[in-house]
Amino acid sequence: MHNRRDKWLSFLLVSPSIIAVAIFVYGFIGWTIRVSLSGWKGLMPDYTFVGLKNYATLLNDPRFQIDIRNTLIFTAVFLVGAVLLGLALAIMLDQGLKGEAFFRGIFLFPMAISYIVTGVVWRWLMNPAMGSRLSGFNLLFKSLGLDFLVNTWHTTPYWGIAFLAIPAIWQLSGYTMAMYLAGLRAIPDQLREAARVDGASEWQIMRYIILPLLTPVTLSAVIIIGHMSLKVFDLIVAVAGKQLPLDVPAIYMWQATFDGNFYGLGAAIGVFLLISVAILIIPYIRFTLRSEENS
């Protein structure tokens, strides 16, 4: 009897959030899908069913092709950069350096800043102006005599978007560092010692013991960085504004919907974003749930 009451009470206590999530997350997902299947173009709602027409338009849309290409390049550079840099920093800090806590704080700190602030600062640093108006990194490179490093940053044709991953890496490598550091600390010292007794070199210990044990951490990092990267909007707008060579789906979604009144098309981009993030996250959630059940 008591048990049943507890069950009821616990259900009641979480019910506000269940209701809120049901309305604001799943309800709106359903509504967005409905809009994405409609021909709504113009200010007032129009739910005329047009099937997958908006999705077909997107696939043939040169702007959306740029978006997909940019997202892939950005995600690849961002992922590889943040994971490798985070791992390197974590391994360095794990060597028992003096002032570890201080450096840990410094590396983690950028994460506390909003993307907009990061974007504005890096907009100044990566200033592509040439000639007498050289500034930011380019000016620094030139005054250090490193003229060959002076470049056009994100205005570089085709690969410009890769440069926009630099501020993102700067901001989030501290976070991956913290994840890896936690992972490293969880590896018992006995394992390393046993390996040393068996005559393994430090490199072999790293390669055959530490890194394999860090695989779950890498997976988590890839998922977290990856889904942030797919949804990126504010960082791009803050550094580069809304220009087409550096366009990503989230910016197109905003412009299509609110500047152009293409509500159906905008909703389709939203659904596309949702699906791409879901492809990344759902297997991860299932994997985590299963491993939790097993343990």
Binding site: D61, R63, P245, D247, G260, N261, F262
Partner: peptide, 17 residues
């Protein structure tokens, strides 16, 4: 109108590149 302008804007962005 806004929709037309947005479509021109998309074409323009690609052209400038």
């Amino acid at each position: 109108n806004d929709s037309w302008k947005t479509e021109i804007n998309n074409a323009l962005g690609i052209f400038v590149a």
